[in-house]
């Protein structure tokens, strides 16, 4: 996998975890199941470590995209970008270097990650 894509995916998972951890409704539901959430600062530190691993240009794009859409990588499932739900051109969808090169959705600009089914 492309090293920058790997970092972006890890970052996006951490962002999602942070969002879930800050959601009072979700915390309440999880608390009832015995699942406590504390130490949000450790997650912020992990996020900062990952951001340090991004190149300057991708870091800038990441910050803009996260501010605007809350994410920067969209999964591709069944040839469809799951950010904008537009079909990926087959030339890209069938490329041998998908996930090893960085590809972006021509419609929404998200970096693309092809999920194995």
């Amino acid at each position: 996998m492309n090293p920058q894509l790997r970092v972006l995916i890890a970052l996006q998972d951490i962002l999602l975890l942070l969002r879930d951890a800050r959601d009072p409704d979700q915390r309440k539901v999880l608390g009832k199941m015995g699942l406590k959430i504390d130490n949000l600062e450790t997650l912020e530190a992990t996020k900062a470590d990952l951001e340090d691993q991004l190149s300057t240009s991708i870091l800038g794009e990441y910050r803009r995209a996260v501010q605007r859409h809350g994410r920067i990588v969209a999964p591709v499932i069944g040839s469809v970008c799951y950010q904008c739900f537009v079909r990926i051109p087959s030339a890209i969808d069938c490329a041998e270097d998908r996930n090893t090169s960085l590809y972006r959705c021509e419609n929404c600009g998200m970096y693309l990650y092809w999920v194995d089914k």
Partner: peptide, 27 residues
Amino acid sequence: RTLCAREELGSTGIGKGVAIPHCRSLV
């Protein structure tokens, strides 16, 4: 990595011998 980060927020061991590690992931 995401699961370990989740565990850092608080153990997913809910007691009585059960643990439910969980996360959402793009993969």
